[in-house]
Every structure is written in C-alpha cells, then in structure tokens.
C-alpha cells in the first residue's frame, strides 16, 4: 500500500529477500546463506533509518496506514468489548468509538479515534476525525467511568477534530472544551496513549490523563506541520521545517515534560510488527494502571490537575 519514500532501499531489499525465499523453497541450500546475509543487511538498514528518523519522517510513520489502529488494540488487549454508541443528543460518531471492556481482568472504559483500515472503513470512520457527537459520547463514557469507578484508557490517533459546517453548527468547540472538562473530572485512573497522530484539540479532548504515553514514532502537535508551514512560512512546502520546529516527536515531548513515557516500537516501526506494538502498549498500560488503582478519586483528580498546572512552568 502506501510506501514511505525513505524506506525505499529497505523495501527493495525486503522484496529481494522475499523473491529468494520463494526460490529457495525449491530446494537450493546455498541461497539460505545469502538470504541470511541480506536479512542482516535489511535489519541494519532498518535500524539505521529508524534510529534517526527526522521529525517529518516520523509524521509519515505516525500516519502509516498499516499501523495498528484503535480497533486492533481493542481486539488484542481487551476482552468483552462492548461498544456503546451515541451522544444521546444527535448521532453516533464512528470516528470515536468507545465502550466498556475488560483489560486483563479489570473492567474499564476504553475509547479512542479509529482511522479505519481500508477505503470503506476509513470513510465510515471519517478518517478518525471526530465531530461534536464523538466528543459528547466521550463525555458520556467518562461520566460513566466515574459513576461505576472504572478506569479509563484513551487511545489517541487523529489528524484533528473534523472541520465542517455541521460540526461548527453543533458546537465543535463546546464539545471539545466539555470533553477536556470531563477528563479532568474523572475520579478513576486515566491512561492516554498516542498511538499514531495526536492532532491538536481533537486529540487533547480525550488526552487529559494521569499518565500520557506516546509510541516511539508517534507525533503530538498543536497544529499539523502542513498547517503550520502554510501560516508561518506561507507555504505548505516548508512542512519539514515546521515538523522540526514544532517539537512534535515523542522524544521532544518527553524532554518538555508533556508526556510520561515512550513505548518503543518494534524494529522498523509499528507497521512492521503490529501485534508486538500492541503487546508492548498493553504492558505499559497494565503497569500504569497497577500503580494508579490504589489511589482514591479525590487524590487522582487533584494530582491530575497539579500535573497539568505544573506543565511548562519550568520548561
């Protein structure tokens, strides 16, 4: 499917290995050695490339279509997933699915942005761009978490809240603002993970959590590099510079104290080994929940407030 420009040499090599494998199944033994060598070279290339991705390259990796998406995480990490639909006011928003589920024995609320896996599902999920209904459903789910004392897991992966006439009409701003407020009022452990793209207000609307993690090659930004470039450089072609200037990588944001930790991706990015990515994320969520579960509601809320009030004060 979508090929990353900077991955081309690796992809070519991987293609050759694939070809050789097909040949070797015919019984030639000598080729095995050659394959091993090429595989080692491919791994080395991957390690080199992914060890020093530029911020702009990370943006591409974070948007890669084959990355595991919200529903992949739900499938693999949660049992008894019971999706809940609708904001009880206007509609159901497929861009922001969520519901009740069990995470390694603990019943919880899980929600997040789903970008979709193929053209059809991408359209149905509106490419992960939620409308006010999505954020109002998120409020509903967080209120429910509060009422039944269930921890909240939010998986963030959106280019941003949907910019449309209907969304504005129905109060996109208010929906996001209230969703942030709901996050702050949750009196149970709240974990957020940026699994791909953390796009501005649409992302932070469900990201005001006790622990915030980012996948190694995910990005989290106040504006897309393209948008930033077209405003500050007056040309979208400067997006690479903007990506660097915005400090949107997990590594930068950990340094700035915006996030609590980075989840390492498998060699060559999450899209090369989806299950492994999801499993590593699961381990981090489990550990964080374990630490937070003993805390009472009042102190969780208070600490969450304090955490955000302290952010950026001594950057």
């Amino acid at each position: 499917m979508s090929q990353l420009e900077f991955e081309k040499p690796i992809l070519e090599l991987e293609g050759k290995i694939h070809e050789l494998r097909n040949v070797s199944s015919n019984g030639d033994v000598n080729i095995a050695e050659e394959i091993g060598r090429m595989q080692a070279k491919a791994d080395r290339l991957l390690r080199q490339t992914y060890g020093k991705l530029t911020p702009a390259q990370k943006v591409l990796v974070a948007r890669h279509q084959n990355r595991p998406h919200f529903l992949d995480y739900v499938d693999r990490l949660f049992t008894d997933f019971t999706p809940l639909a609708g904001d009880r006011r206007f509609a159901e928003d497929h861009a922001l699915p969520g519901g009740l589920a069990r995470f390694r024995g603990t019943s919880c609320v899980v929600l997040g942005h789903e970008k979709g896996a193929d053209t059809e599902s991408r359209i149905r999920h509106n490419f992960g761009m939620a409308r006010p209904e999505g954020y109002r459903k998120a409020q509903r789910l967080m209120d429910m978490a509060n009422r039944f004392q269930l921890p909240v897991v939010a998986l963030i992966d959106t280019a941003g809240a949907y910019p449309g006439v209907g969304a504005e009409e129905r109060g996109q701003s208010e929906a996001i603002a209230k969703s942030i407020e709901s996050c702050l009022h949750v009196g149970t452990p709240f974990i957020a993970v940026i699994i791909g793209e953390g796009g501005s207000g649409g992302a932070i609307a469900i990201g005001v959590a006790d622990r915030i993690y980012m996948l190694e090659h995910s990005v989290y930004s106040v504006i897309s590099p393209e948008g930033c470039a077209s405003i500050l450089w007056r040309s979208a072609t400067q997006a690479n510079e903007a990506a660097t200037a915005l400090k949107l990588t997990a590594q930068d944001l950990l340094r700035l104290g915006i996030i609590d930790g980075i989840i390492d991706e498998p060699l060559g990015g999450a899209h090369r080994n989806r299950d492994e990515t999801v499993d590593r994320t699961g381990a981090v969520i489990e550990k964080a929940l374990g630490e937070l579960m003993p805390c009472d509601s009042a102190s969780l809320r208070q600490e969450r407030r304090k955490k955000f009030l302290e952010m950026g004060r001594a950057a």
């Binding site: 996001i176 603002a177 942030i180 407020e181 996050c183 702050l184 501005s200 207000g201 932070i204 005001v208 989290y220 930004s221 106040v222 200037a245 915005l246 400090k247 949107l248 944001l253 700035l256 915006i258 407030r305 955000f308 009030l309 952010m311 950026g312 950057a315």
Partner: peptide
C-alpha cells in the same frame, strides 16, 4: 510554543 500551547486548553479549564 508547540504542545506547550495546546496544554493551555486543559490548564485554562482547570
């Protein structure tokens, strides 16, 4: 101010 400006959304709500 990058993400440090985005987090002013929750901060202002607090």
């Amino acid at each position: 101010e990058g993400m440090l400006s985005l987090i002013q959304m929750p901060r202002s709500i607090i």
